[in-house]
Computed example of a mutant assay.
Amino acid sequence: MPVIDVTTDTDNLTLTITAQFAAPVERVWEIYADPRQLEKIWGPPTYPATFVEHDFTPGGRATYYMTSPEGDKFGGWWEFLAVDPTSSFTFRDGFADADLNPDDSMPVGENHYAFSAADGGTRAVYTATFNSADDLQKVLDMGVVEGSSSAINQIDELLAA
């Protein structure tokens, strides 16, 4: 299992997940840069993602939806703030309505994903920062730790393919 640590810091309003992959940084980076590969790992295994838009550049946006086993669709959006190829990217991450427009009633996190060579593979540190303790608690209550961990753990299978 790639996920090796999960830390919630309510003082700093962050959730940090650390993972280790047995692949070079460039290969792990490709997964996030290519929406067709990203679809295979974004979301828990039973909620596959479909990326409708993926402009992986600063100022670019991504929109997607995950489909439940019952066929229900759950939308999301990203706004890329910074992209440093193969080492990190930062983006605002929010929930979306059925038309993939931002849902202002739901929390928005600022995510920073960093990748570095470590132990013969790649160390990935995924940090989400929220605006308030209530927003952090809301996503925790929704199962973000379990969902994100199971999504990240799918990366090994994609890397092995």
Rank of each mutant, 00 (worst) to 15 (best):
V125N: 08
S149L: 04
V6R: 12
G147K: 11
M1A: 11
Q137N: 13
F130Y: 15
D9L: 11
A124F: 15
S116V: 13
L15S: 01
D119N: 15
V25H: 06
D93C: 03
A160H: 14
M142V: 04
A22N: 13
F51E: 00
S150M: 10
M1K: 05
R92C: 04
S68T: 11
W29G: 01
L159W: 09
G147S: 07
T57R: 15
W78L: 15
G120W: 09
D93L: 10
E70C: 01
D156F: 13
P102R: 06
T50G: 01
F89I: 11
E26P: 08
N131S: 14
T122N: 10
Y64I: 02
A33N: 12
D99S: 12
D141P: 08
Q154D: 06
A128R: 06
D11W: 12
L38E: 02
F115P: 04
E53G: 10
M66K: 03
A133N: 07
S68W: 10
T7R: 15
G59D: 05
I4F: 03
S87C: 07
L81S: 09
L13A: 04
A118Q: 15
F21G: 03
M1C: 05
V28S: 08
F51A: 02
G43S: 06
F115E: 08
V3F: 07
D141W: 15
V6F: 14
D141K: 13
A33D: 11
L100Q: 04
Q154F: 11
L81R: 12
P2G: 07
S105C: 09
E70I: 00
D97Q: 02
G109Q: 10
E79M: 13
V108Y: 12
F74L: 10
G143M: 09
S132T: 14
T10Q: 13
T16A: 04
A161H: 14
D141C: 13
T127P: 04
K40L: 11
A62K: 06
E157Q: 12
D135E: 14
Q37T: 00
T127Q: 10
S116M: 13
D97L: 01
A22K: 14
S148C: 13
S68Y: 09
T86A: 01
A33G: 09
